[in-house]
Design a protein around this nucleic acid. Sequence first.
DNA 1: CGCCAGCTTGACGAGCTTCAAGGGTTGTGG
DNA 2: CCACAACCCTTGAAGCTCGTCAAGCTGGCG
Lengths: 228, 228
Amino acid sequence: MVRTLSLTAEEANAVRTGMGPAENAPPGSELAKDDVFSELRSPRILLQGWAAEQQVLGDGRRQIFRFVLPGDVFGLQMTPHASMANVTAVSAVTHAPLRLSSPLAEEGGPTPVFAKIADILLAEFIRELQNQVVRLGQLSAYERVAHLMLELYFRLDRVGLTKGLTFEMPLSQEILADALGLSAVHTNRVLQKLRSDGLLEIQRNTYCLMDLRKLALIADYGALRRPI
Amino acid sequence: MVRTLSLTAEEANAVRTGMGPAENAPPGSELAKDDVFSELRSPRILLQGWAAEQQVLGDGRRQIFRFVLPGDVFGLQMTPHASMANVTAVSAVTHAPLRLSSPLAEEGGPTPVFAKIADILLAEFIRELQNQVVRLGQLSAYERVAHLMLELYFRLDRVGLTKGLTFEMPLSQEILADALGLSAVHTNRVLQKLRSDGLLEIQRNTYCLMDLRKLALIADYGALRRPI
DNA sequence: CGCCAGCTTGACGAGCTTCAAGGGTTGTGG
DNA sequence: CCACAACCCTTGAAGCTCGTCAAGCTGGCG
């Protein structure tokens, strides 16, 4: 039974040995694509910076499925024909290919330790997609922003990228809006409201969640919260 | 490389031999749950009727992630702690447990054929979740309904549950609304509009898509369409 | 210094929700 | 066989949330 998403020492080592050479990429560059003609690439791990899994519609509208944070794996679920989805850097990033099947067992499929890692990552990925569906389908703009802030906070906290209630978020409000299914203007107004309600402080790219309990209450985050 | 979601004869046979005894359940019954205290159950295959993967919020709001149609597997992605999500029958259903790892290789993990089936199902599942995110995040109510109708049509068509452009959909408008992130009243108005635009005909639970091309254009369905 | 991207604010309108009431259909009990 | 209840669909009216357009502002950078 998978109790937590953290890896054992053995698993962490497996990830380390499976990592290929790191690459840098500027904001806006496409890190992975997923359409009929692209070749199947190895999954990759994001080492620095933020990226976004997104889909662009025919008329230019963009929906971000999920933000990829440092330590996250992306491209794991890419399947031919899946959609016009892609993964794009939203800040300067460093990423590396990640072999999740053992080089020793090429034909025999993944070894148990790699299979378990892939399962853990996939479960996490699905959970985040489901959270996104609930946010977009049921929550008001105010609730939505609170909910996303909490998710980002806890995900960053798990990999040591918070300081107290504070974290760095290199996203413009326009990008935030594309993840939230809101206009940039309204996203801004909601952020103002959260600030005037004493729940959020923002300075440049530094966000501070002033009251996790109140935010979780607003966003009904309890039902979705992973174990801490 | 996975080119299509249809199974080979060998794979279809594997599914058949892995199926346990079928059970019936009335509308509204919970077929699978996914929370901290539930034991890990085997995935199941839906043989008849419709079900919905959903999550209920603290205040009673409900979001449906995805409809489970005959032939679909559910409970595959259920993970402890995942959320308060569950799978609920929306009509009378028949379902059966489905063993996706070979009984011959208990400790060795799944055999290749079972692993491939699980991969195919998982990829399909993720694609549908992503479609749902785009629908809820970017599409207007009118576009959203058109988009969902197309998805349901093509999924049903793949398992032989359409007659021409017509299919049976045992969903109340309220349930439809919970999948679309709309109120039941507005869902009704949008359906009226699609009818008066000559794109949809409804008689009881029988839906007929009068113009797939126009509907696909309205919903920007091309970018998401699976190969036919 | 001036430019550019991103943030902020106001005014207005469209899209959607809510409340409310009426009507059709199915199943149930007198 | 009819009356009634339960459920679902339908429609109107009113109001709120959010989007759009537009303008001004701010800070970083050449």
